[in-house]
Amino acid sequence: MSRPLRAGLVGLGAMGRKHARVLQALPGVELVAAADPREQARAVPVGVDALECVGALIDRGIDCCVVATPTVTHDVVAQQLAEAGVATLIEKPLAPDAKTAQTIVETFARHGVLGAVGHIERFNPALRDMRRRLARGEIGEVYQVVTRRQGPFPARIVDAGVVVDLATHDIDLTAWVTGSPYRSVSARTAHRSGRPHEDLVSVVAELANGVVVTHLVNWLSPFKERVTTVTGDLGCLVADTLTADLTFFQNGSEPAQWETVATFRGVSEGNMTRYAIPKPEPLVTELEAFAAAVRGEGSEVVTLEEGLATVEIAEAVRDSASSGETLVLSP
Rank of each mutant, 00 (worst) to 15 (best):
D75M: 00
D75C: 00
V76P: 01
V76A: 10
V77W: 12
Q79S: 05
Q79F: 14
G85N: 09
G85C: 04
V86H: 10
L89Q: 02
E91C: 00
L94K: 02
L94Q: 05
P96K: 02
P96E: 08
A101D: 01
Q102A: 06
Q102S: 05
T103D: 07
I104H: 03
I104T: 04
I104R: 03
I104P: 01
T107L: 03
T107H: 06
T107K: 07
T107I: 04
R110G: 02
R110Y: 14
H111V: 06
G112S: 09
V113Y: 11
V113N: 07
V113D: 12
L114F: 05
G115R: 03
V117R: 05
G118C: 03
I120P: 07
E121A: 03
R122I: 00
F123G: 08
F123N: 09
N124H: 14
P125A: 07
P125N: 08
P125R: 07
P125I: 06
A126M: 08
D129C: 08
D129G: 02
R132F: 08
R132D: 09
R133A: 06
L134F: 13
A135T: 09
A135W: 11
A135Y: 10
E138R: 15
I139N: 06
G140N: 13
E141V: 11
V146I: 15
T147D: 12
R149V: 04
R149K: 11
A155S: 10
A155R: 06
D159T: 01
D159E: 05
G161P: 03
V164A: 00
V164E: 08
D165L: 00
L166R: 10
L166K: 13
T168L: 00
H169P: 05
D172W: 02
L173M: 12
L173Y: 15
T174D: 09
W176R: 08
V177M: 11
V177L: 14
V177Q: 11
G179W: 12
G179A: 06
P181Y: 14
Y182F: 15
Y182I: 07
R183D: 09
R188T: 14
R188G: 10
T189P: 07
H191Y: 15
H191G: 01
R192P: 01
R195K: 04
P196K: 13
P196Y: 15
H197C: 01
E198W: 08
D199Q: 12
D199A: 11
V201P: 10
V201Q: 10
S202V: 14
S202T: 15
A205E: 05
E206W: 11
A208Q: 07
G210P: 06
V217D: 08
N218A: 14
